[in-house]
Design a protein around this nucleic acid. Structure first.
Lengths: 220, 220
DNA sequence: GTATTTATTTCGTGC
DNA sequence: GCACGAAGTAAATAC
């Protein structure tokens, strides 16, 4: 990884064309070949960048980063270099994620009684012609319920579930099928639409649910 | 801007929980308060980050980045610092973009003959109850044409234009209205759907069109 | 202010 | 390899 602090101008041509006037910035050159130009704001987002595969050619003050696959090009005109250092980082073991929708789905699949006593899982990722339903269940009375799970419940999730319900209700083996919209947080608009369509909203406490599964916390 | 190369472990808790095992990484602390943890790959994307507003508290080897607005938290456990430098960058004049959909729309509005001889513009951003149509035109024969413009023509753009056409064709003053789907690049799926719905596809050469407007190129 | 759309989206996953 | 959906999406824009 190479860190360069330099006064520079940058031009990009590719999916769009863009220009950066002369100013002092960080030029970050990674071992993967990527080059990104950072200002002192915009959080982690660079002003300009080139994704690998690409090659950096330094011709004096003119640095050219050319994409190997497309005709995208970044031209950096160096005015003055204020810092230039390189560092061996090695391969990163990578990020271990937790808490995404998939995990929430697995937890709920293993704990369908979260929705009500006597519930049981028919199957996870129940296939339909327009895509899999997250969970297909039977409630205590034996009625079929399609469950759509989101981390954040928004209006498009309700639309998605509505499409599934319409399809599932055409199947006389399953019909009538009702819907449950489960999320860690449900937006008011989504809740209103769901209620209007007789879909039950359930907000899920992910931490509590995980506690059922594995009470050992990592750090928090 | 502060650049720290350090062997470290990182834990994040917020919208998800995540852990980074001990490894050497770049810790980038920007003047806007943001902190991002970079490995030597993943292009410009950090492994972990915290967006402003947030505060970094260093307590020996334990660095804590706490979001001011939410309860998101990043805990960095420093094992060894290999590099630590700070740099004054000043305010960046920022990126001047060109080539986005808005500009493409303006260019085409000024050059509707791109679609055919004798075409003229009725109006740009023609209002309908479900949103504005990019361009409403009349072709050489006087027939009404609705034009939907995208940088990249994908299936949802065709759906959008279809909804506009359905609405516009209810207006006896305009009907019959046909559709043109214009983009720099049209995906095969979108083209197939458009053809099926008798919508004409037009791929636009943005550079050539811009050349009509302003023949002076910046760099390329 | 909130809701919607865009993004040089990027990134993963299933086919 | 390509289409589809999710993202700690974020950011800009419309309302």
């Amino acid at each position: 990884m190479r860190l360069v602090i330099a006064r520079c101008q940058v031009d990009y041509a590719g999916r769009l064309t863009a220009h950066l006037p002369l100013a002092t910035r960080l030029i970050l050159v990674k071992a993967d070949g990527s080059v990104s130009i950072h200002a002192d704001d915009r959080a982690y987002k660079p002003l300009n960048w080139m994704s690998p595969p690409c090659t950096l050619v330094e011709d004096g003050d003119a640095w050219t980063v050319q994409s190997t696959k497309t005709d995208d090009r970044l031209v950096i005109e160096i005015d003055e270099i204020l810092h230039d250092s390189s560092h061996e980082l090695g391969v990163d073991p990578g990020l271990e994620k937790d808490g995404v929708e998939a995990h929430l789905q697995r937890l709920l699949a293993e704990n369908v009684t979260t929705f009500g006593d006597g519930w049981r899982l028919v199957r996870r990722e129940y296939p339909t012609p327009i895509g899999p339903v997250d969970l297909l269940c039977r409630d205590a009375s034996g009625a079929t319920v399609a469950v759509e799970i989101k981390r954040r419940g928004e209006i498009d999730g309700v639309e998605q579930l509505t499409r599934y319900l319409e399809l599932l209700n055409r199947d006389p083996q399953l019909s009538p099928v009702r819907g449950v919209f489960a999320a860690q947080e449900i937006k008011p608009q989504a809740r209103t639409l769901a209620n209007d369509r007789d879909i039950t909203c359930v907000t899920v406490d992910y931490n509590a649910l995980r506690g059922v599964d594995d009470p050992s916390d990592r750090l928090f």
